[in-house]
């Protein structure tokens, strides 16, 4: 476990526990939880509420042969699959989304030395990996919706402090921030957005269609 300074807010974790989040955000929370036992404990606490809600439900009738049908579905017990523990940069859920670790990412340049790789995009949100060169800044931007940034490698600094591996920043509308990668190594982040970002200033505005955020 890394020493995580910036944690996910409760409503986000509850949304993950209830299954209400857009897919792009599910990926970021699952990856954050893989890196933070605190976040995992909070998600599992919210899941315990789900268990209590389930236990409290009035029973409905099941089919007469329901148990027999279920036992037929079970079939012969197969070998127990060993859980996969990632030893690379990317925890398992992100590894699955990428199809491998850091070296498997198909980066595309989006300008100013910044590279990205879109992992998922639908009408509810987009998840992407960003790679910011050490010491360089992301284009300054504000956004219409929620933006979640999880650091996987290196670190960045903005108005809210320094964010390193496992740290999660959640910014909502009206926040205007300029993340700058800390010197030393490139900063790799997993970012989910639920609305197109608005960039400030002429040059970054030109870059926006390429970034797609």
């Amino acid at each position: 476990m890394t020493d995580i300074q910036h944690h996910a807010p409760d409503d986000l974790l509850m949304g993950y526990a209830t299954g209400a989040l857009p897919q792009a955000f599910d990926l970021v929370v699952a990856t954050h939880v893989s890196l933070s036992d605190d976040a995992r404990a909070r998600v599992e606490a919210f899941e315990a509420v789900g268990g209590a809600v389930l236990e409290d439900l009035d029973k409905v009738d099941v089919a007469d042969d329901s148990l027999e049908q279920t036992l037929a579905k079970i079939g012969a017990p197969g070998p127990a699959a060993a859980p996969v523990i990632s030893d690379g940069t990317f925890p398992t859920p992100l590894r699955n989304a990428v199809g491998g670790d850091e070296d498997a990412v198909r980066w595309r340049y989006v300008g100013r030395g910044v590279k990205q790789c879109v992992l998922h995009s639908d009408e509810h949100g987009t998840a992407r990996l960003l790679r910011i060169p050490a010491g360089r800044s992301m284009p300054e931007h504000s956004h219409n919706g929620t933006e979640m940034t999880l650091v996987l490698k290196g670190a960045f600094r903005d108005e809210d402090g320094v964010f390193a591996r496992g740290d999660l920043e959640v910014a909502d509308a009206q926040v205007n921030h300029t993340p700058i990668a800390e010197p030393g190594e490139d900063c790799i982040c997993l970012v989910a957005t639920d609305a197109r970002l608005k960039f400030q200033g002429l040059l970054p505005r030109i870059a926006q269609p390429f970034l797609g955020i």
């Binding site: 209830t18 299954g19 899941e47 315990a48 789900g50 268990g51 209590a52 389930l54």
Partner: peptide, 14 residues
């Protein structure tokens, strides 16, 4: 870490 009900809830949710 979880009651049986909680664990079943997570399977049902997924």
């Amino acid at each position: 870490r979880a009651s049986v009900a909680t664990w079943i809830f997570t399977i049902a949710r997924n």
